[in-house]
Amino acid sequence: MSTTNVVDNPETLPARRNQSVSQLDLIVIPVFFVLLAILLTVVWIYSDFDGTTTSILEPDRLWTQAQEQITVALWSTVLVIVLAIPLGILVTREGAPRLKNNLVTVLGLGQALPAYGLLVLFFVAFGQGTLTVVLALAAFALLPVLRNTIVGLEQVDKSVIEAGKGMGLNGFQRLRKIELPLAVPVIMGGIRTATIINVGMATLAYLIGGGGLGITIAAGLKLNRPVTILVGALLVALIALAFDFIGGLAQRYLRPKGLS
């Protein structure tokens, strides 16, 4: 009898796809992580380190840089979440001004700017330092989360919201009990994308005094030490994979039960 699925909504398909991808992710990401970690160990052990290389790749220094990278990525992601989700909720409310599409377009243009250019713009506006980097990265990674929040909220089956309204749930209750839970899988997808962007872009933080593993990579480039470039890049990749894995876990466990 299930042929007459009353609430069949083709718009829920992207969410389903997200789900299957994230489940696959939870296997693929750790595999990649281990492979890259092995590669890093091999490079570290079997490369010839001259004095310069040794001083660039001093473990204490790398540890500090990794922490800076993580800090910048983490805070810019937090900022993105804090800004983009409420904004996405706001513009999808009934009777909200019709600035939804304009907003996405403008932010899309922002993302079309080279990341380097964006950093420089923020540097000019806010000066040197970690805060500037965090702001610049947040601006850059805002779009995926905003767009997914809007899409996630709008793909919620209208009849479910209608039924909630008909049972006397007010606007806030409908948002909290129906729309947000059902949008979680899509919003989480956007957050994961933003996280990866932020971890990667944090590599450029060194340009305006934000530190991070970019220092190691840049030093390797300037002093022609390919090993340090490789080690720096591998460390960035490992951090990105770790972040994405956490995002994958969150996507899986925050996803409401009962969705196919």
Binding site: V6, V7, D157, S159, V160, I161, E162, A163, G164, K165, G166, M167, G168, L169, N170, K177, I178, P181, L182, P256, K257, G258, L259
Partner: peptide
């Protein structure tokens, strides 16, 4: 208050609109 009114009237729609994330 419309919400108070709606809680006093059952409402059934063609698409049913069950909350898919609730039992």
């Amino acid at each position: 208050d419309p919400n108070e009114l709606r809680r006093r009237m059952g409402y059934v729609i063609q698409q049913v609109g069950l909350f898919p994330h609730r039992t």
